[in-house]
């Protein structure tokens, strides 16, 4: 595993501020694009980050998202202060959600967030205890060019 860390960024996440939700993930997407991470990896990371960010917004009080870029991978940590998850297996079950009626009316609460994250990430580690918040660690492999170096510089188009 290549241990050279190329970049580190942190973005705050405000609990309850659903209308701001997605800002941290959008910022992560931007720094990944600037770092020249391949589009396929960016898409997987963006989906996972969004779900993790909205879980903090909807289910916790506050938190932050940290992104570390390495030549061969990107790691994401999402750390929150909140109630934590009592039963992780249950929470990981597709369709299971504790979302309020209000959140469901806004289109949240399908119980798909954690399953989506698990599907997108190459490795997922969730640490939590009731009352202690949630610490989510994700690893995404990125495409490496032939000489072992990641493509550098601005990698083109939006989207």
């Amino acid at each position: 595993m290549d241990t050279r860390r190329l970049a580190h960024h942190e973005f705050p996440i405000l609990g309850r501020a659903y209308f701001l939700g997605g800002r941290a993930s959008t910022s992560v997407k931007q720094v990944l694009r600037e770092a020249g991470v391949d589009d396929a990896a960016i898409r997987r990371i963006a989906v996972a980050c969004y779900e993790a960010e909205m879980n903090v917004v909807l289910h916790a009080r506050s938190g932050y998202m940290a992104v570390d870029i390495y030549p061969d991978r990107v790691t994401i940590a999402v750390i929150d202060k909140g109630p934590g998850i009592e039963n992780v297996d249950l929470a990981m079950t597709p369709g299971w959600s504790s979302a309020t009626d209000e959140a469901r009316a806004l289109g949240f609460g399908a119980g798909m967030g954690l399953p989506n994250i698990r599907e997108q990430a190459d490795a997922m580690d969730i640490r939590t205890a009731k009352g202690d918040g949630v610490q989510l660690f994700l690893t995404f492999k990125r495409e490496v060019t032939d000489d072992g170096a990641p493509p550098t510089g601005d990698s083109g188009t939006r989207g």
């Binding site: 993930s25 898409r43 980050c49 969004y50 909205m54 806004l106 289109g107």
Partner: peptide, 9 residues
């Protein structure tokens, strides 16, 4: 939030 979802996708 719909803008965040559409943008990220």
């Amino acid at each position: 939030n719909i803008v965040a979802v559409a943008g990220l996708a």
